[in-house]
Nucleic acid binder design. Structure first.
Lengths: 185, 185
DNA sequence: CTTGTTATGTACCGATCGGTACAAACATCT
DNA sequence: AGATGTTTGTACCGATCGGTACATAACAAG
């Protein structure tokens, strides 16, 4: 249901009315409630699960499992840029976090951001940083991505996101494996 | 109308129903529409104007006018920490930017973030940085503040905001005048 | 074709939305 | 006191909200 995700992403939880969802997906209420007997809340939950699965597969798992942590971090920045369409796409979970659904989906929201920050910090520890510094940088990066998305949207300039991502990648060491700098003496 | 601001801050534009506003402010519809004939939209606009005035007075003007740019930047971080209650308070304009009111108040939202970024960058230029670097750092700081607010709310830990603000202050040189480091040889 | 299951459109429900109308209450001033 | 102007409460409006009921349409299996 990519359409379903996009409706929630563009209008938030409260703003995504059933009529909007129906118009966007081409499904009537009958179909909608056939696939999601739990109504709007189940639709949003399924969307959140889908997003979580994407990040789990493309970001979190590599950060945890890749034997080369720096490569995994570089891949994370690439995946992030791709997912958010270089700043043209908003973060649905961030939207849910501050707007309308923060209580309803508190668990999923917390899990998403906590997992991201933690797996990133752990990857940094594995690549040689001390734990305290790693947590700081991880928070800086995950928060920086969210803030760049907000800023890019607010001033209507995706370039803000691109620049932020580049800065954050340098800071996280994720560009080193791309630039092949550290491998040179 | 501090209550009015808080209702919008906690529920967003769409979420702040007239019944919620009435309950929070203690005013009935009669009074509400007496003071704001333009209805909800005028209420939100007045709230945005109030916030803009606060930042203009406490942040933007000092950044522009203070003969000591580094002191102004340090004061900015202090004011920011105070305004957002060390991460316990959300940024209403950020909420409006991504959730429900981004089109309706696009001008005010854009102005807020653009002014903040620009005046901060200019202060940095005045304190000796080159313009390109100044813009980068300014975007980093303003975006970082927004992101830290999102993250702090999402994981329900105001400490995230405190740590982020400290990092950003160091990065922006705003702590130098506090620590009295640069004045020593 | 018949049958059983899955999918869909439509009509409806009570609740709430933002907004309007207006008369009673209140204050203010001569 | 009386007259004037400002604040309030309340009843109401049409529209839309999320959700339910149910009859029908589409379809696969036999």
């Amino acid at each position: 249901m990519p359409d379903l995700i996009e409706v929630f992403r563009e209008h938030g939880y409260e703003g995504a009315s059933l009529s909007l969802i129906g118009a966007r997906t081409g499904l009537g209420k009958g179909s909608l409630y056939h696939f999601f007997p739990g109504g709007k809340e189940e639709m949003a939950a399924s969307v959140l699960a889908e997003i979580d699965a994407w990040f789990e597969h493309r970001v979190f798992a590599p950060l945890r499992g890749d034997p080369d942590p720096e490569a995994a971090i570089a891949a994370m920045f690439q995946a992030t840029d791709l997912y958010f369409r270089s700043g043209a796409r908003m973060c649905l979970i961030g939207i849910f976090a501050l707007c309308d659904a923060r209580d309803r989906f508190a668990g999923a929201i917390h899990g998403y951001f906590a997992t991201w920050t933690q797996t990133l910090a752990e990857a940094m520890v594995r690549s040689g940083r001390n734990p305290g510094e790693a947590r700081d940088i991880a928070e800086d990066i995950v928060g920086g991505i969210q803030g760049a998305l907000v800023l890019a949207r607010a001033v209507n300039d995706p370039g803000v996101f691109a620049r932020a991502l580049r800065r954050l990648a340098v800071r996280g060491g994720g560009l080193s494996s791309v630039r092949h700098r550290d491998t040179q003496p």
